[in-house]
């Protein structure tokens, strides 16, 4: 619209001639701006107070050492970042987190899918199993942690008793650095399964029966039906579940705090738990802020990659 405005190149005072036109556009603009302000204002205000300001403050704190009241006291530039990446404990946390996140997402989706397919069968009493499969949704983290803690107890736990009865080597699930992460992964997958199952099951139920009837008539086997018809059609749901599980796994805190407190030997000290430890136990807000910034960057990059890579293959 601005490009179509009449221009007078001969005029010594171009502003004078175009003034009325500009005025009307300015009025239009300010009216638009008013609407923008009215509609965006409240959410912007809330977001800036509770999201943007804390983010900026975190970035700011990540460049400082903090005193015993948590205030920024000595500017250290990027030293906090350098010390993080030179700290073998932090690097092993990073590795453990990646392993945990990948294992949890992959296992959750595969197992959830298996249960969802199984629950599709029209069998007597299948409703009972559908309820059971989705039941972990209703279990809180603390209850799950207590339940699994007892199962993993090396003296009186179920696993210990089974391995004793079968004369298998006894595994000290939560105190052995080689098994602790596995134990936490198993628990998390079990926790996640209810939600994943429900979403995937819902998606499968909504697929039109006619497609499968046509496939039957054409003599297509069940396996091929699943991979060629069901899977592509529920891919948006699968993508959604993948992202949610992945981000959830990055944010895992409760189970770690209740089951291993980050040990043994930092084997389960995932990034979020480390942030908590450094901020609220060690009172080292500067370092904790640095770790938060790094964690945010990692989640952002991975989500971006997911959208780029998987977004193309998803049929909406």
């Amino acid at each position: 619209m601005l490009q179509s405005l009449p221009r007078n190149s001969n005029s010594k005072d171009p502003g004078a001639q175009s003034a009325p036109v500009r005025l009307s556009t300015t009025a239009q603009w300010s009216k638009d701006n008013l609407y923008v302000a009215i509609f965006l204002g409240p959410s912007l205000l809330i977001l800036s107070v509770f999201v943007f300001w804390p983010m900026i403050k975190t970035l700011y704190l990540s460049l400082f050492l903090t005193d015993n009241l948590g205030h920024a006291s000595v500017f250290v530039g990027l030293n906090n970042y350098m010390s993080l990446f030179n700290n073998p404990a932090y690097l092993s946390s990073l590795g453990a987190t990646l392993m945990y996140v990948i294992a949890v997402s992959v296992l959750t989706i595969i197992l959830g899918m298996l249960l969802a397919v199984a629950a599709q069968q029209r069998l007597r009493g299948i409703r009972f199993f559908r309820t059971i499969f989705s039941s972990t949704m209703g279990i809180s983290v603390s209850v799950a942690a207590i339940f699994w803690l007892f199962a993993f107890n090396p003296s009186v736990g179920v696993f210990a008793q089974i391995s004793q009865a079968l004369h298998l080597p006894e595994i000290n699930w939560l105190a052995d650095p080689h098994f602790a992460l596995l134990a936490v992964i198993m628990t998390t997958v079990w926790m996640n399964l209810g939600f994943t199952f429900l979403i995937l099951f819902g998606a499968l139920q909504q697929l039109p029966a006619s497609l499968f009837e046509a496939a039957e008539i054409a003599g297509v086997g069940k396996t091929t039906q699943f991979f060629k018809i069901s899977l592509p059609l529920i891919s948006p749901t699968l993508f959604f579940v993948l992202i949610v599980t992945l981000i959830d796994a990055f944010k895992s805190f409760g189970l770690i705090d209740l089951m291993t407190v980050g040990g043994p030997n930092n084997a389960t000290n995932l990034l979020v738990y480390r942030v908590y430890q450094d901020a609220f136990l060690n009172g080292n807000y500067g370092l904790a802020s640095t770790e938060s910034v790094v964690l945010t960057a990692i989640i952002a990059v991975i989500t971006l990659i997911q959208f780029k890579l998987l977004g193309k293959r998803v049929n909406y």
Binding site: L149, P154, S155, V156, N172, L174, A175, T260, G263
Partner: peptide, 23 residues
């Protein structure tokens, strides 16, 4: 020796084992 790890879980596990006569 048996290792129950760290944190409150370690304490509840060692107490459970002690009370059950396994420690």
């Amino acid at each position: 020796f048996i290792d129950y790890g760290a944190g409150s879980q370690a304490e509840s596990n060692e107490i459970a084992a002690f009370l059950a006569g396994k420690l």
